[in-house]
C-alpha cells in the first residue's frame, strides 16, 4: 500500500510550515535543510527550526486545466508560487477565490486542506493550501 512513511515523515512541514533558519546568515529555508546552501560548513549545527507565519503574497500563478488524475475533482484549480513573509517561496494551490480575482501580489494565508488520497482505501494526505486574506 502506497508510500505511507514517505508522506508521514513530512507532516510537520505540511501541517505547520516548519522550515529552518540559518543562524549564520539569517536566511530562511522551507522545507528544512541540514546545511545552508550559502554558508555551507559555517552553518553546520546552526540550522534552527522556524515555523513560517503562513502569510505571503502571490508571486506567480496559473489555472491548471490539464492535471494529474488524482486532482480530477478539483479541476480547474489555481496553482501558485507564494512568496512568504519570511522570504521563501512555496508552491501550492490557491482556494476559495475565483481564478479571475487572483493577481500577482495578492495577499494570502495558509490553511489546511486535503492534498490527496491513495485510492479509495489508502491513506489521506493533508497539508497547506492558500486562501486570500481580507484586505
Amino acid at each position: 500500500m502506497g508510500s505511507i512513511p514517505r508522506f508521514w515523515r513530512e507532516n510537520p512541514s505540511r501541517y505547520n510550515l516548519v522550515g529552518v533558519k540559518c543562524d549564520n546568515c539569517g536566511r530562511v529555508f522551507f522545507p528544512p535543510r541540514d546545511i545552508c546552501p550559502v554558508c555551507h560548513r559555517e552553518s553546520i549545527g546552526k540550522m534552527k527550526r522556524l515555523e513560517l507565519s503562513g502569510k505571503g503574497s502571490v508571486y506567480s500563478y496559473t489555472l491548471v486545466q490539464d492535471a494529474h488524475p488524482q486532482f480530477e475533482m478539483l479541476k480547474p484549480y489555481i496553482l501558485a508560487m507564494v512568496e512568504m513573509d519570511e522570504g521563501v517561496k512555496i508552491t501550492s494551490q490557491i482556494i476559495d477565490v475565483k481564478p479571475e480575482d487572483v493577481h500577482i501580489g495578492m495577499k494570502v494565508e495558509a490553511v489546511m486542506r486535503k492534498l490527496g488520497a491513495e485510492g479509495n482505501s489508502g491513506i489521506l494526505h493533508y497539508g497547506y493550501k492558500f486562501r486570500p486574506v481580507k484586505e
Binding site: 514517505r6 508522506f7 513530512e10 522545507p31 491548471v64 490539464d66 492535471a67 494529474h68 486532482f71 478539483l74 484549480y77 496553482l79 512555496i90 508552491t91 501550492s92 494551490q93 492534498l115 490527496g116 494526505h125 497539508g127 493550501k129
Partner: peptide, 11 residues
C-alpha cells in the same frame, strides 16, 4: 514532495 504533491504539473 514539494511541487507535485500540491498539484503542480510540469506545464
Amino acid at each position: 514532495e514539494w511541487e507535485s504533491v500540491f498539484g503542480a504539473t510540469l506545464p
